[in-house]
């Protein structure tokens, strides 16, 4: 096989795996948008917050340590224990559920029937608030997140492809794990929404609020549920991203990468979020590989947005979208 093709194949594979992460973040958006018509700008910050909380709990960090120390003149920082990863993840899920409840109780339920733009503004406020809270709770330094996921080049794939083509593919173990976990997560969500009482109620609310009310569904319950699920998805994305490049505030910027994913996939479609994520992941890697060198590189910063713009012009509702997104 010609060398260029092999490179391209490797780049495509890596792109697919990067796309999985985009898809995960976009999925969080779609869930909330479908159920409540809210475009949740805070989804990226939620991923950051979840990852920060996870690290904090694992390391036994005292939340709000800085605030406490300043107020009481103390010098506490750590509880002096380490929490195992699994337990810490469970606790973090708990924190995200509490967060979901607070969002609904203190903000969203007061904004029922407001214009989408008002709801959107509320989530922008929420994003900055949550960023501040995360900062105050856990500090703003970059943190290493190690939940025991395998990292580094996968030797087996390297060896096998080398034997077959005379060129060893570089595939990161972490990317592979992320892909597997994302697939499990999506399968779980599908089973949940198709076969459980709550899933059915969730689909009902996403379809028609009035009808959902009449069959005995509590909208508040569903909204807390859907924000909790979005929080969980954010946690998963936060773990993957955090394990890859450390937990830092740039994590919240992946939300901006999810936007072109949504423009391509449609705001209301779960398959759309996944396929949109993969298209962008592969597209930006291949573009950088093939065209990048000719135009000075760093195309990954803007390629996704240009692609999304092209999609906007050709197919404004996205690949799988139901509604024209100009409503947002």
């Amino acid at each position: 096989m010609p060398e260029q093709l092999l490179f391209a194949a490797e780049v495509t594979l890596n792109g697919l795996m990067a796309g999985v992460l985009y898809a995960l973040v976009a999925l969080g958006f779609v869930l909330i948008y479908k159920a409540s018509g809210i475009f949740n700008y805070a989804q990226g910050v939620m991923a950051l917050f979840a990852a920060l909380t996870l690290v904090g709990i694992m390391e036994g960090q005292v939340p709000f340590a800085h605030l406490i120390n300043i107020t009481f003149g103390t010098e506490i920082h750590h509880f002096g224990w380490h929490v195992p990863a699994f337990l810490a993840i469970v606790l973090t899920v708990g924190v995200m559920v509490v967060f979901a409840w607070c969002v609904n109780h203190f903000v969203m339920r007061h904004l029922i029937n407001q214009e989408p733009i008002i709801l959107f503004m509320a989530t922008i406020g929420l994003a900055y608030f949550l960023e501040g809270v995360g900062d105050l709770m856990w500090g703003s330094d970059i943190k290493r997140l190690d939940v025991g996921l395998p990292q580094g080049i996968n030797e087996v794939i390297d060896q096998v492809t080398f034997d077959a083509f005379g060129y060893g593919f570089f595939i990161d173990n972490l990317d592979m794990v992320a892909t597997v976990i994302a697939v499990i997560l999506v399968a779980g969500l599908v089973i949940f929404s198709q076969y459980t009482k709550q899933g059915r109620a969730l689909r009902a609310v996403a379809d028609d609020h009035q009808a959902a009310l009449s069959v005995g569904i509590s909208l508040n319950y569903i909204w807390v549920l859907v924000w909790s699920i979005a929080g969980f998805v954010a946690l998963v994305a936060g773990i993957m991203w955090g394990a890859k490049s450390g937990v830092q505030f740039s994590l919240s910027l992946i939300a901006l990468k999810a936007l072109p994913v949504l423009l391509i996939g449609g705001f209301t479609s779960i398959p759309g979020a996944i396929i949109g994520g993969l298209i962008i992941g592969v597209g930006e890697k291949l573009f950088e590989f093939a065209i990048g060198p000719m135009i000075g590189g760093a195309t990954e910063n803007w390629f996704a947005y240009v692609l999304a713009l092209i999609f906007l012009v050709i197919r404004p509702q996205g690949l799988f979208g139901e509604k024209i997104i100009e409503r947002v």
């Binding site: 689909r203 009902a204 009808a211 005995g216």
Partner: peptide, 30 residues
């Protein structure tokens, strides 16, 4: 609804994206 009062609407409120069967199944949620 949980008290056993069901209703229909003047302007029809159904779950358009779901099948007839799924729509009727939501009536069983309570």
């Amino acid at each position: 609804a949980e008290q056993g009062i069901a209703r229909t609407f003047q302007n029809i409120a159904l779950f358009d994206g779901m099948s007839v069967l799924d729509n009727i199944m939501t009536g069983r949620l309570t």
